[in-house]
Design a protein around this nucleic acid. Structure first.
Length: 1124
RNA sequence: AGUCUCAUAGCUCAGUUGGUUAGAGCGCUACACUGAUAAUGUAGAGGUCCGCAGUUCAAAUCUGCGUGGGACUACCA
């Protein structure tokens, strides 16, 4: 036996064998080494974090990566694929805290930073082996032996180098920003944590509209603005966080918003007051029916608070007006404020959608507040400490927690007391409960506040134009992510907050003197050691500092140095006669991963050539959630360093949801575990399902039934085709001779057709993969395998394989089918690397020896080492493809007519009739006649001439052409054309034009503007579809009926042979019960039957041993079949 | 809240530059084929192309406004 025959398709089994083969023969390495050094295709692996288990969504991303790397390898590129691990950051730290049952405050007290970081280092690689397993079993080729690790000194120092370069460009500064902060946990929170599910919750807060009284010194300015003469007035400002009111230092208005000065009454004290608020929002706080037309009409009683609009002014006119501090205490007096305070400023974020159009501004507790205050030189007050309580010197608020952070039994919100205080003083206009969504700390369940903190920033805003320009050079898949989500993000870019007050991360390499005058940014390990040497030699350090420095150096000499905290914090440097201490923070992990193009090679300290070869990347792929993550950091760092994009092509894939479109989560129990699914269904089936189901950037609704379908449809069909081939190839001992194949031109039309289709397929797949559209590639292969190869080519060719001898025609059939299978194996191998490999090997192993000897394309032991088969344009014959398509359509139409009349295909019919308009059309049908006749069991085709009068034509407007010409008469004329009688149609055909009148206009229509088709043949069984019309003659003759019986008999005998497990070569003898009808059938078709069923004799017999009852159409009789 | 994205048959998806019977596969029903047989074919049922408005002779397709799902960014008085 030349080709292995299998009991059935077992993908997981195949994959196990292939994996073993790959390992034993180091195929992955070979696939890289065999490609030239100077023709590289650069791929970057976005480092995953191994502190969690990989899920099915990782299979999606990694399948996409693998496809293009494998494809480019086949194209002859050298595709190195260095793996990598993201090892730092908050997720790791939080996990460790959880495991140890500690909080941030305990780090450095209950547990040393050193111990803590050791624990982080262990935890981060906790699931590495599972990740490696997944990578392996899913068939993702990645260099797992030499991955980059972001916690290694070599990696860290590269990152330092990058930071120092950015620093040198003067793009780094230390700033003070408002960040989410959890007083209960005593820690700042990353946006990552804030976006944990369930962080945002609806809470009910006390809201206050407070009255800020205009300073008497500014009342004149106010009167000018509103063109009035009042003695006092109050600004109205709304807040949902009354506890920030004591920290208020400004009121912000919109410069272009119109404000009104409204004379009315304080609802709580009933005193006459004048209020300023956005004109548009008057109706929100006052009832329109209570508006009066003059100030004299104002009157108050218990129920009515009427009001009068004194005047209006633009916000810009209010700028600079001072007001009384709302809640003055000892600790928040004006002299405690650095900068201006208690005045009206303008800001563009002010809206009139809610509140009063005047924004209470507390720069310490709001991002916008901080920004607008800074722009206007307004100082800040921070009346709440890091524990979330008011500082001392705040009167009745002193020492009170702004929210219930301690679960106190009798906790009373200061918000309420502030409201009461303001009400009694006549400084509250409105107090009410308000429900809104507010972020909570996911660990303590307590509300977060926004709090000012120190951080280092990268001034990304100053490279905005380059970032945008470089983004335009990137090929985004899909494009909208690049122009939309990413483009928009760049348009609104903010400075990058680089530092985190945490422990497990790359330390910020900046040392600073106590007086802030001296700053030093270290750019590498050696740089640091040199600085240490200089510092020690300076004589400015204490003995203790020198000892620590020496110890640090000694560790490096001994090869056990560590650039992490806490060791790095013990290093003291000296610059210009001043002692420098390290800025204690670590950097954002996203900076780690964005540095990988350089740091993975320890650039510039080593591998300079390697780096130059591998930068920028040709291709990267990650989830769309990385748009503002890795895609951004790669882009930004690359732009700052070299002013070019870090990657040329990027595929951002969508999410993986469950089959109902819901997010997968352990809680819902709808997760698909790849470690269960892959061994059960096979990685290839899953990979193919993922890719063929929808474009990578669409969300994937993962339905495991779909995987099953893919397995049946594609792999099952291919496997069946393979089995078919081997069944006969083994009998005939067929092995392809690469040096001597039948020239394509000498093969049958059907062979040339499938070869044409095959080359068209190659073209489609190649184009799709070049465009990073793997879905189109997979679907094209699906269609080819199912529709063309299996259901047309093989089905129609079966007879060629049954012949006994090995004729030239049979050989051509083998060669053709073989080529199709082998090409498909290669085309599919990037997506289905296992099955592609299996198919390639099992078909080519028998000829390997010769191929190696002759150095032909099939000399490679693995499909992944082969070279992408070139598209052979000369074999693409689109006319032939169209002809066969017509044959398929015609066959399908005849079959559907048969179906309608309940006539089995085994029953021959005399003729089909096809109306043809001209000789050309007739020739077209004639060219497919034989195929169709065999396919639908019809004896002859009759072509009916246009002028025979046998068929009816119909006309239809050509909308595309006529639309432009006729304009709004289109509809009416289309109707008239559809109603053309035969004479009118004939006129169009004869004269090439016809005149129609519509709405008084006479239009001349030419032939091209009218589509004429045959639609009916009265008196016959007719079907008309897609411009094809045909009729079937279903009248029966005795001959036809007898042949039907003969074919029926053949069918029964074949089934019997199958049931009895006869070999396909066994000869048989048939006896039948003597009966006149049977005699006649056998007389007419005996030899036909004999050939078909390999019967040596067919005889009537009155005495059968084991007769079978058979029903042959109308004939019920008995037969007996015996092996000879 | 902003930005992006998606919405076509029960399900998963196609649908070219707007052009007149809106397609495929799965599933369902029925029938057939079978020297590939744990495969296959044919047919049938199944559509408010998310809604509304507009542009146009003509809209699943273009524009605007909504609704719903999802992602990201943020949380703002």
């Amino acid at each position: 036996m030349i080709y292995k025959e299998y009991k059935g398709l077992n993908l997981p089994e195949i994959e196990k064998d292939v994996l073993q083969f790959w390992e034993q023969n180091v195929i992955f390495q070979q696939s890289i080494d065999s490609r030239p050094d100077d023709k590289s295709f650069v791929f970057y692996e976005g480092p995953p974090s191994a502190n969690g288990l990989p899920g099915i969504h990782h299979v999606v991303g990694r399948t996409i990566k693998d496809i293009f790397c494998r494809y480019k390898t086949l194209q002859g590129f050298r595709v190195e694929r260095k793996g990598g691990w993201d090892t730092h950051g908050l997720p790791v730290e939080l996990k460790v805290e959880q495991e140890l049952g500690i909080t941030k405050e305990d780090i450095g007290t209950k547990i040393s930073i050193e111990e803590y970081n050791v624990k982080c280092r262990e935890t981060v690689m906790q699931f590495k082996s599972q990740w490696d397993d997944l990578t392996k079993i899913m068939g993702f080729w990645l260099d797992l032996e030499h991955p980059y690790m972001t916690f290694e000194n070599g990696y860290i120092e590269s990152v330092w180098y990058i930071i120092s370069e950015i620093y040198k460009k003067n793009l780094m500064y230390k700033g003070y920003t408002i960040q989410p902060y959890s007083p209960a946990a005593g820690t700042g929170l990353s946006t990552h944590e804030l976006n944990q599910p369930g962080s945002y919750r609806d809470v009910t807060d006390t809201t206050i509209v407070a009255c800020f009284e205009v300073e008497s010194c500014c009342i004149d300015k106010l009167n000018v603005a509103f063109n009035t003469k009042l003695e006092n007035a109050h600004f109205l400002a709304w807040t949902t966080t009354p506890w920030t009111l004591p920290s208020n230092t400004a009121l912000t208005v919109g410069a272009k918003i119109e404000y009104a000065l409204v004379a009315s009454f304080n609802p709580y004290t009933k005193a006459r007051q004048n209020f300023i608020l956005a004109k548009e929002l008057i109706s929100k706080w006052f009832k329109p029916e209570q508006e009066v037309q003059s100030i004299e009409e104002l009157a108050v009683d218990e129920k009515t608070f009427n009001y009068f609009v004194v005047g209006t002014a633009l916000g810009s006119a209010l700028k600079g007006i001072m007001y009384h501090q709302l809640l003055p205490f000892e600790a928040n007096s004006a002299d405690k404020i650095e900068g201006k305070s208690f005045q009206v400023i303008t800001g563009d974020f002010v809206t009139t959608t809610d509140g009063t159009g005047i924004v209470h501004t507390a720069p310490s507790f709001g991002v916008d507040d901080r920004k607008v205050a800074k722009e206007n030189g307004i100082g800040s007050l921070t009346m709440v400490d890091l524990e979330g309580k008011f500082i001392q010197g705040m009167g009745f608020l002193s020492g009170r927690y702004v929210k219930d952070y301690r679960d106190e039994k009798d906790y009373k919100s200061p918000d309420v007391d502030i409201a009461i205080e303001l009400k009694t003083k006549g400084l509250a206009f409105n107090v009410q409960k308000y429900v809104h969504s507010y972020p909570h700390c996911w660990r303590t369940d307590k509300p977060v506040i926004y709090y000012p903190m120190d951080s280092w920033f990268i001034r990304t805003t100053s490279v905005k134009d380059q970032l945008i320009a470089n983004n335009k050079k990137i090929n985004w898949k899909p494009e909208s992510t690049g122009t939309g989500r990413f483009g928009q993000w760049l348009e609104n870019i903010q400075d990058w907050n680089l530092t985190r007050s945490r422990f497990w991360g790359i330390p910020l390499p900046i040392w600073k003197s106590k007086n802030n005058e001296e700053l030093c940014c270290i750019g590498g390990q050696q740089d640091l050691l040199t600085h240490i040497g200089n510092a020690n030699a300076s004589g400015l350090l204490s003995a203790e500092e020198v000892v620590e420095n020496e110890k640090f150096k000694a560790d490096f000499s001994a090869g056990k140095g560590d650039l992490h905290k806490p060791f790095i914090d013990r290093v003291t440097l000296v610059q210009n006669g001043q002692v420098l201490k390290r800025e204690e923070d670590v950097i954002d992990v996203w900076f780690d991963s964005g540095s990988m193009p350089y740091a993975q090679w320890n650039y510039p300290f080593s591998n300079q050539d390697k780096f130059k070869q591998a930068y920028p990347a040709d291709f990267i792929a990650e989830g769309v959630d990385q748009t503002r993550g890795w895609f951004y950091t790669l882009h930004t760092i690359s732009t700052i360093l070299y002013d070019q994009p870090a990657y040329k092509n990027v595929v951002s894939n969508g999410l993986v949801l469950d089959k109902n479109g819901e997010k997968m989560s352990k809680r819902k129990g709808n997760v698909i575990n790849p470690f269960d699914a892959i061994p059960k269904y096979g990685a290839d089936a899953i990979r193919w399902y993922i890719i063929s189901n929808s474009a990578p950037w669409e969300n994937l609704k993962f339905d495991i039934n779909g995987v099953d379908e893919v397995k049946r449809k594609l792999f099952g069909t291919l496997y069946n085709t393979y089995s078919f081939f081997t069944l006969y190839a083994n009998i005939d001992q067929f092995v392809l001779d690469e040096m001597n194949v039948t020239p394509i031109r000498e093969r049958t039309e059907l062979d040339r057709w499938i070869i044409s289709k095959l080359n068209t397929l190659k073209k489609e797949v190649q184009e799709a993969l070049e465009n990073y559209e793997p879905t189109d590639a997979a679907r094209a292969i699906d269609t080819f395998v199912d529709r063309n190869l299996s259901n047309w080519y093989v089905r129609l060719c079966r007879r060629r394989f049954w012949k006994n001898d090995v004729s030239a025609d049979k050989r051509a059939a083998y060669e053709t089918l073989y080529e199709c299978l082998m090409t498909v194996a290669q085309l599919m191998s990037p997506i289905a690397p296992f099955f592609g490999e299996w198919l390639y090997q099992t078909l080519s192993n028998p000829l390997r020896e010769n191929a190696v000897k002759n150095n032909t394309p099939l000399r490679h032991i693995s499909v992944h080492l082969t070279t992408w088969a070139p598209i052979e344009e000369e074999y693409i014959d689109l006319n032939l493809e169209r002809r066969v398509e017509l044959a398929q359509d015609v066959s399908s139409m005849i079959l559907s007519l048969r179906k309608k009349e309940q006539i089995k295909v085994r029953q021959p019919l005399q003729k089909a009739m096809i109306p043809v308009l001209n000789e050309q059309e007739k020739m077209l049908y004639q060219s497919i006649e034989d195929i169709v006749k065999a396919e639908v069991n019809v004896k002859e085709f009759e072509y009916v001439d246009e002028n025979s009068g046998l068929f009816v034509k119909s006309a239809k407007a050509n909308f595309k052409l006529l639309g432009k010409k006729l304009g709004k008469d289109m509809a009416a004329i289309a109707k008239k054309i559809a109603e053309f009688d035969q004479n009118q149609i004939n006129q169009v055909e004869r004269e090439g034009k016809i005149n129609i009148e519509e709405g008084g206009v006479n239009y001349e229509l030419v032939k091209a503007e009218i589509e004429i088709s045959t639609s009916d043949m009265p008196g016959f069984l007719v079907v008309s579809e897609n411009g094809i019309t045909l009729a079937l003659d279903i009248s029966m003759t005795e001959d036809l009926l007898d042949e039907g019986v003969a074919r029926e008999l053949i069918n029964k005998v074949q089934n019997y042979r199958k049931d009895q497990n006869f070999n396909v070569t066994d000869r048989i003898k048939i006896n039948y019960a003597p009966e006149s009808n049977m005699d006649r059938v056998i007389k007419k078709f005996g030899s036909f039957i004999s050939t078909e069923v390999l019967a040596n004799e067919i005889e009537p017999s009155a005495s059968m041993q084991k007769p079978l009852d058979v029903e042959l159409n109308e004939i019920n009789t008995k037969i007996e079949i015996s092996k000879l």
